[in-house]
C-alpha cells in the first residue's frame, strides 16, 4: 500500500508549491542573477553608458589591497562575534537554568536587547563609549586608559564587536536555554549519583546533548556577523577610522551607493554570496557530522 499522500490532480501540487517558488524566484534568484550580470559590467556614475568587461571587476577587486584588508577584518570580526556571542550566551543560559528563585526575572532582562534595532543598539553603545561624552569612556580615562575609537583602529573593531555581540546574546541565550531544558533530567541525576560534579556533568553530558542547538546557532551567527551587522557598522563607525571597520557588506554599500561604482559593488556582492554559500556548505558537510541528534 502506498503510504505517501499522492495528489491525483496534474496541476494541484504545482499550484500548492507555486507561492514559495514564486517568492524564491522573485526575491532571491532574480536579484542574485542581476547582481551576477552587473558584476560583468562597468558604468559611468550616472549609469548612462554601460560596457561589458567580462571579469575585469573581479580582477580589480583582488588586486585592491583595501579589499583584501576588508576580507581580513571580516574574518576577525565574524569569528569574534560568533565565538564571544555563543560563549557568553551559553554561560548565562547554564546559570539561568540552574537557579530557581528569580529565574523569570533574569530571563526577561536578558531577552530585552533582542527588541532593539541594530542601528539603535549602536547609538546606545555610543552613549557609553563616545570619545568625548561616553559614560564608560569617562571611567576609562579616570583609570588612565585612553579610549578613542575614532582614532584607534583596534578600539573601533572592539566597539562594533561589543555592539554586535550584545545585540545577539538574547537570541543565542533563548535557544541555549530551550536546549538545556530539553536535556533529560534523569541522565543528569544518574551522573550526579555516580559522583560527577557540575563541571564534569556539563562537559560529558549537557554540552554534547546541546550540539544540535550549538550547530544551528553557529550557522545563524556567522550569517548574522556577515550581513546583519551592516547597520551597526554604519551607525557606530561608518567603516572608519581609515577603513579599519569596513567589513565586506559595508564595503559593498560604500562602493556601490556612495562611490557609485556599480559594477565593482555588484562583483563584491557576488564574492560575498559565494563566501556565505561556501561557509554554509562546509558547515553542513563537516561540522554537522559531529552533531549528535
Amino acid at each position: 500500500m502506498e503510504k505517501r499522500v499522492v495528489f491525483k490532480s496534474p496541476w494541484l501540487p504545482y499550484a500548492l508549491v507555486a507561492p514559495q517558488l514564486i517568492i524564491t524566484l522573485v526575491f532571491f534568484f532574480w536579484p542574485a542573477s542581476q547582481a551576477m550580470y552587473w558584476s560583468l559590467l562597468i558604468q559611468d556614475a550616472f549609469a548612462a553608458r554601460t560596457q561589458f568587461v567580462w571579469f575585469d571587476n573581479f580582477r580589480d577587486l583582488f588586486n585592491d589591497p583595501r579589499y583584501l584588508a576588508s576580507f581580513q577584518i571580516t574574518a576577525v570580526f565574524s569569528v569574534l562575534v560568533t565565538f564571544i556571542g555563543l560563549a557568553v550566551a551559553l554561560l548565562l543560559a547554564v546559570f539561568a537554568d540552574r537557579v530557581v528563585r528569580g529565574a523569570r526575572v533574569y530571563k526577561t532582562l536578558l531577552i530585552w536587547p533582542y527588541a532593539v534595532a541594530a542601528a539603535v543598539a549602536a547609538v546606545l553603545w555610543l552613549f557609553l563609549l563616545n570619545p568625548t561624552l561616553g559614560v564608560v569612556t569617562h571611567l576609562l580615562r579616570a583609570l588612565g586608559y585612553d579610549w578613542n575609537y575614532l582614532l584607534n583602529a583596534r578600539q573601533a573593531l572592539i566597539l562594533i564587536v561589543i555592539t554586535a555581540v550584545w545585540k545577539q546574546i538574547s537570541y543565542n541565550f533563548l535557544f541555549f536555554l530551550a536546549g538545556l531544558q530539553s536535556v533529560p533530567k534523569s541522565l543528569i541525576e544518574a551522573a550526579a549519583i555516580d559522583g560527577a560534579g557540575p563541571a564534569r556533568r556539563f562537559w560529558t553530558i549537557i554540552f554534547p546533548m546541546l550540539s544540535p542547538t550549538t550547530f544551528f546557532l553557529l550557522v545563524v551567527n556567522i550569517v548574522y556577523a556577515f550581513f546583519d551587522t551592516f547597520a551597526i557598522v554604519d551607525a557606530a563607525t561608518g567603516g572608519g577610522p581609515v577603513q579599519a571597520t569596513a567589513i565586506l557588506v559595508f564595503k559593498v554599500y560604500q562602493d556601490g551607493v556612495q562611490a557609485l561604482d556599480l559594477g565593482g559593488s555588484a562583483a563584491q556582492s557576488v564574492v560575498l554570496m559565494a563566501i556565505v554559500i561556501a561557509l554554509t556548505v562546509i558547515q553542513f558537510r563537516f561540522v554537522e557530522r559531529k552533531v549528535q541528534y
Binding site: F95, A96, V99, L109, L124, F127
Partner: peptide, 23 residues
C-alpha cells in the same frame, strides 16, 4: 553554587541592561 549562579546572572544582566538604562 547557588550564590555563584546568582552573581554571574546579576553581572550578565547588569552588562546587558546597562546600555538600555543609559539610553
Amino acid at each position: 553554587g547557588s550564590i555563584v549562579s546568582h552573581l554571574v546572572l546579576i553581572a550578565g544582566v547588569a552588562i546587558v541592561a546597562l546600555p538600555l538604562y543609559v539610553g
